[in-house]
Amino acid sequence: MAELTRKEVEELALLARLHLEPDELDRIGSELGTILAYFGTIAAVDTTDVPPMTHAVPVDLALRADDPAPSLPVAEALRGAPKRDGDLIVVPAIIPGSES
């Protein structure tokens, strides 16, 4: 399996919201390459006619009844919030009008 290019490592870092210094980019690039090589080993196995498996246990999805239960108290829910304004969590500005 091919080594990751520097650009691919930079993209991965961006997607993971990680800031990496140039030397870290080199180091992580090579470490990720090693990890990818393990997948190369797995990928080498002949899986013709083997259906893809996405779950280790052959069970169907369990469903629950639509019964509401009490929510967390607001103080408890916000205990880990870095910054608050009343009962709202405060984060650095996201682009205006982009709420989704």
Partner: peptide, 26 residues
């Protein structure tokens, strides 16, 4: 629905901010 998709916190419009959460939602 009365409760959320994957956990039992209530679905309700206009409730006080952050009052409808649970560990799954968070």
């Amino acid at each position: 629905t009365r409760s959320k998709a994957f956990s039992p916190s209530a679905c309700e419009f206009g409730a006080p901010a952050n009052s409808l959460t649970d560990p799954v939602v968070l």
